[in-house]
Write a protein that binds this DNA or RNA. Structure first.
Lengths: 325, 325
DNA sequence: TTGAAAGCGTTACCAT
DNA sequence: ATGGTAACGCTTTCAA
């Protein structure tokens, strides 16, 4: 790799001067600048980011910690983060925490050792204290860690209310809920939204709620039990799309047609929801926008541009009507 | 951040000594080692990876370049790579190239500037020359760039033959093929495998092949055309799962039942293929294993452990029989 | 306007 | 067995 010294020698100037034109800082004469630029060009010189990082005590890298990139929600998020980051001059280190507290702390340590400038994290277990201790900007995405921390989330409760009300409007009389993993904040919020709408119905009690683990398998199980407990259920609001798909499968297993016998609505709007048959009606989160906003927010935090906007954003969700309802 | 100097001072030794215990290289006395270890522990010291990288001219980071993490094949691959990398002490920088030659070269430059030790890449446009010029190990995954380069691929042709033969065994008389993007090598290989089996059938000609773009939308279109051209088709081999799902949708649109009227088989074995109704019969690639093997191969290349094994691996594929056939 | 040199945190060589 | 120090490639301060 060719270094700043080589460029300096080639251009017949000092490394300091090369550095100045590189960062255009300080005074540099017209001709000198030309010479240096020519040298850079001809030698195809690219500054060593590691050396820069060491001096500046910060890298051009950000960390992205997600529970599991295989969970269909996260690839789109990751894509948005990476797209935005590269555009702003940053790289993204991908970390899969499995929602495990120890792994998360481990990644935090590692990222700090790598001098990453900032971190975007989707976690249920991380505490505000852990984050503050890091001393670098962190944006929490999809989940609220603490009201004081920069955050991007969506209207979970409102979305859940929309979903439930929509099922009612479609004529559903008994609406069950497949709830997400209760250690996840947004699962609670979505459940609250559901209860907000049907909590006062005379038929309602807690047995209309079954808990899944935000994955397909657990949802099939949960739905099977739910429908056996309450064969009269004609509508299901699942707390995410994967579980909604599981619910559809379970309904089929019991010989019910979707949407004729039972209407099913999901939450998230992952691309998978368009690939199923029937296509899934869902509450769509602006996933890409979340990643983009989070990254922009993080970068302005990192670059200390006084964050002109609020750094706690609650994004809106949209009902996407498809075939499962 | 606390540095090696702090540790040295705290332990009452020189930085050189601390460095020795850190890397356990060179001689260190028993008691001295104890003192240093205690200091490290008590100060919660973590060595600065950036400084290390600068000195060693290599980082503990590898690059992963994929066309698009949103393509369902890649999250599982990325997960495998990251899992394996972290276990071996490396981080992963994620790059989405969109298969664009300029973006790929750009990422190559950036990764080199970051002193990454090695790169795993899935690309159709990268040339052997570009890679050799980098002067760091590169493992090509899912696509062959050059026979001489470390590579992990699967038996594409064989898998395609299996798929086509399987459709025959299920009683299909007219089998069409939805081909992948022809700029992608594996699309050609899969097409070859298909032709190998039915190329000599009296009814066969090239119009039984329709080209999609490895995505759902293009496949729906391609399948619609294919089935209108040849209404007697009763079996389709799609070059990947997404396109197979598109084919199912197209079949439904034309009022055909799957698998009763038409059997459809995919390729890849992405998790999505289990989520559809009907569940998709497919040729499963060992995606996770590919990522794992590629990472291990890359790391041994990086660490110069003479690669005991061949560094050109062709992995086997498996027929997964489900409901669509 | 330019250059020399210190320093970022680490490792490895050379002394001792 | 241990310490001093140059070097990795860069930026920035201080002098000139």
């Amino acid at each position: 790799m060719i270094s700043i010294k080589d460029v300096a020698k080639y251009a017949g100037v000092s490394v300091a001067t090369v550095s100045r034109v590189l960062n255009n800082s300080g005074y540099v004469g017209q001709d000198t600048r030309k010479k240096v630029e020519k040298a850079i060009e001809e030698l195809n010189y690219k500054p060593n980011e590691v050396a820069r990082s060491l001096f500046k005590k910060q890298s051009t890298t950000i960390g992205l910690i997600v529970p599991d990139i295989m969970n269909p929600f996260f690839p789109e998020l990751a894509r948005a983060v990476e797209d935005t980051a590269i555009q702003l001059g940053y790289n993204v280190i991908l970390c899969n925490s499995d929602g495990d507290q120890k792994k998360e702390q481990n990644y935090l340590d590692i990222l700090q050792q790598q001098y990453v400038n900032g971190i975007i994290v989707s976690s249920n277990t991380l505490t505000a204290a852990q984050i503050v201790r890091l001393n670098i900007p962190v944006v929490s995405i999809d989940r609220v860690i603490s009201k004081g921390l920069p955050t991007i989330v969506v209207e979970n409760k409102k979305g859940a209310m929309m979903a439930t009300r929509y099922l009612q409007s479609k004529g559903c009389r008994r609406i069950g809920h497949i709830k997400g993993n209760s250690s996840v904040v947004n699962a609670e919020e979505r459940c609250e939204g559901y209860k907000e709408i049907i909590g006062n119905e005379p038929w309602f009690d807690e047995t209309y709620i079954a808990e899944g683990q935000y994955d397909m398998q657990s949802s099939i199980q949960a739905t099977l039990e739910l429908l056996q407990r309450h064969p009269d259920i004609d509508g299901i609001f699942a707390a995410n799309d994967i579980m909604a798909i599981g619910a559809i499968k379970a309904a089929y297993q019991l010989g019910k047609r979707v949407p004729e016998d039972i209407a099913i609505i999901g939450f998230d709007g992952i691309s998978l929801s368009k690939a199923t048959t029937p296509e899934l009606t869902t509450i769509e989160q602006p996933i890409y926008e979340m990643g983009e906003k989070a990254t922009k927010m993080l970068v302005s935090l990192m670059e200390q541009q006084t964050v002109d906007q609020e750094n706690y954003k609650i994004l809106d969700v949209t009902l996407i009507e498809r075939e499962s309802t």
